[in-house]
Nucleic acid binder design. Structure first.
Length: 321
DNA sequence: GGCATTTGACCGTG
DNA sequence: CACGGTCAAATGCC
């Protein structure tokens, strides 16, 4: 990523922050669910955090571009010829809550790192032959950031350990609905306190295997407020068009978090090769649907333009409304 | 008892 | 030989 691209991304993040602030302002009235405001607030913070990070990165690389690469390459044994990108996403979840069941099989102190690296493989490795694995390491620079490196693809059936997406019931009484909403908000706020960021890295063994990366991620859509008749459906829908809202199947039903695909696309930090935005677009737009899951997975391919098209009208204030 | 985690040993690679 | 990744016995938890 060169200086010009970086500036473009910073601009995008700042614009996104501005637009989200505008949306938040519209939802300040009491009838708007506080949950929505919290999500918006978090997203705004993420946008500005990303912009600041980009600014830092730009400043750093513009004066010491070689050193910046040294961070990732020094003393690192390259065990596979693949390449990897790191994508920062904001999450209300811990780094391990990505919807799959992982089993830790090792931990290693990494030279030059303050925190050990944890090695995880899919719980169903032997029962279903699922070869997915990941490495999780806390960032030295910011302990709230986790670098998650995924390898392999999930071939397991997640139905056995995933919590089905909660679908609003039309027969649910208003009282129960309100109670559940309050409870959800409380849990959400609790999660917000534990807000963390994770730095995700997608690594492929070879270029042909790149399609396997994103399908490995369960991105169930939080549908709690979509079309529930309380007047917020439109807003949520617009959120869904611009963002991915998640329910963490491994956690309680209310443990949802949101990740903007824009964030995902905007932080393509190349490690081994110069990965372009279009490169990542290819990864995301490649066959992404996981059809053997009861959970509604988001078809990320529909978000291509949102994520990477430089001409996409982020300036359009009507987009979020 | 079954499953997950911990941790030292072992192995492959550069 | 150093380092990162994996194995597997020991241990802990439910």
């Amino acid at each position: 990523m060169d200086w010009e691209q970086s500036n473009l991304l910073i601009l995008k993040e700042l614009r996104q922050g501005r637009e989200l602030s505008s949306v938040l302002r519209k939802h300040l009235h009491p009838s708007s669910p506080p949950q929505t405001r919290l999500v918006l607030l978090h997203k705004i913070l993420c946008s500005y955090h990303n912009a600041l990070s980009l600014l830092n990165w730009t400043a750093f690389t513009s004066t010491a571009p070689i050193a910046s690469h040294k961070i990732h390459t020094s003393k690192q044994r390259k065990t596979c010829s693949g390449r990897s990108e790191q994508i920062r996403v904001c999450s209300l979840e811990g780094p391990l809550e990505d919807g799959y069941c992982w089993r830790k099989y090792g931990q290693k102190d990494i030279l030059g790192s303050n925190f050990p690296r944890g090695y995880y493989r899919c719980t169903h490795r032997y029962s279903q032959g699922c070869l997915a694995a990941k490495q999780v390491q806390r960032s030295d620079e910011d302990p709230t950031i986790f670098e998650v490196k995924y390898r392999g693809r999930h071939t397991c059936n997640r139905a056995s350990h995933s919590v089905a997406m909660k679908v609003p019931s039309t027969t649910e009484s208003e009282e129960n609905a309100n109670h559940s909403r309050v409870k959800q908000q409380q849990q959400h706020e609790e999660k917000q306190k534990q807000s963390k960021e994770i730095l995700m890295s997608f690594e492929t063994e070879d270029l042909d295997n790149k399609d396997d990366i994103f399908p490995s991620f369960p991105f169930p859509i939080e549908s709690e407020e979509v079309g529930n008749g309380n007047g917020n459906g439109l807003f949520v829908k617009s959120l869904m068009e611009n963002d991915i809202a998640f329910v963490s199947p491994a956690a309680s039903e209310s443990n949802y978090f949101s990740v903007s695909p824009f964030h995902m696309g905007s932080f393509v930090f190349d490690q081994n090769v110069q990965a372009s935005e279009s490169d990542l677009t290819e990864r995301i737009s490649a066959p992404t649907s996981v059809t053997n899951s009861p959970i509604v997975d988001l078809d990320i391919s529909s978000l291509d333009k949102l994520e990477f098209d430089p001409s996409f009208p982020f300036d359009n204030s009507d987009f979020f409304t």
